[in-house]
């Protein structure tokens, strides 16, 4: 009887969005975890708010504004790091706050009020407009194609940047590509869990998967499964309990992370017991 809600278009859209988000965060999140770009991803997600504000101000679709703005910031960060030798962490701090500030400023400058602001900040998987779903689908497909084609090189450059340089791989271009892919992922996840919670979905499922993976491929597959469990499970739970979907998804993922830690602790005790 609970499945009857699948008859509603808004709910089917939500499930589609959840699955797309899962694929994206499983694949790109795995790179984020192994290359330790978690805080950078958080920074890009918050920078997206600048694009939302700019969108309202210019009268462009704020979701498109966020997409363009985040991509531009990702390329800017990559270039500044390369040219000025700044730490990624420093740049993260700058764009994190500067992006939010830009958003606040432009929203204040825009006459009237911004109706969907809350949705951008906290996400609402149940209220994703169909046009945005199409944008998400195109981005997700793009991510999938790019990662499939560049898989070997992306793994090589995230595993050992210096050796990739010794092998004459286009390291700078590959790192920029990775930042672009993270920006795309942030946009796909934005509608699902919101700017503030994107970082959790890019981090938690791959972090769980990593503990059970001996290769990048298996880590990505497990991450997608873990993320799908969280998003779809969280979607149903939030609908049934009538609570915000983004927060439910994230808390479900956090619970999964806790269970993983507990399982690892138990496994550690078992092997210790066997050894002793």
């Amino acid at each position: 009887m609970m499945l009857s809600i699948l008859g509603f278009e808004f709910f089917r859209n939500a499930v589609a969005a959840g699955l797309m988000a899962s694929i994206v965060c499983g694949i790109i999140g795995s790179f984020v975890i192994v290359k330790r770009l978690v805080s950078l991803s958080g920074g890009l997600a918050h920078a997206a708010f600048g694009g939302v504000g700019l969108g309202y101000f210019l009268g462009v679709d704020p979701f498109l504004g966020a997409a363009g703005f985040t991509l531009a910031i990702a390329l800017l960060i990559g270039t500044i790091r390369e040219k000025f030798g700044q730490y990624m962490e420093t740049l993260t701090g700058v764009v994190w706050a500067a992006g939010m500030a830009t958003g606040i400023l432009f929203i204040a400058l825009t006459p009237g009020y911004a109706p969907e602001l809350f949705g951008f900040l906290f996400g609402n998987i149940l209220l994703i407009p169909s046009e945005d779903l199409i944008i998400m689908g195109i981005l997700a497909l793009g991510i999938l194609l790019i990662v499939t084609a560049g898989f070997n090189q992306l793994v090589a450059v995230t595993f050992d940047e210096e050796y990739a340089r010794v092998m004459n791989l286009p390291v700078t271009a590959l790192l920029l590509l990775l930042l672009m892919l993270i920006a795309f992922s942030v946009i796909v996840l934005l509608r699902v869990v919101g700017i503030i919670l994107v970082i959790a979905l890019l981090t938690i499922p791959p972090a769980i998967a990593r503990e059970y993976s001996g290769s990048m491929r298996s880590m990505m597959c497990l991450s997608v499964l873990a993320a799908a469990g969280c998003t779809i499970g969280g979607l149903f739970l939030s609908y049934v309990m009538n609570v915000p979907s983004g927060a439910t998804i994230i808390l479900l993922a956090t619970l999964g992370y806790g269970l993983m830690l507990f399982e690892r602790w138990m496994a550690g005790r078992r092997t210790q017991g066997a050894a002793g």
Partner: peptide
């Protein structure tokens, strides 16, 4: 890094591919 020994060694040939 989640990589098998074979994958790690193989990655050393990427510049020649």
């Amino acid at each position: 890094y989640p990589l098998t020994v074979e994958e790690m060694v193989l990655s050393g040939r990427l510049g020649l591919v």
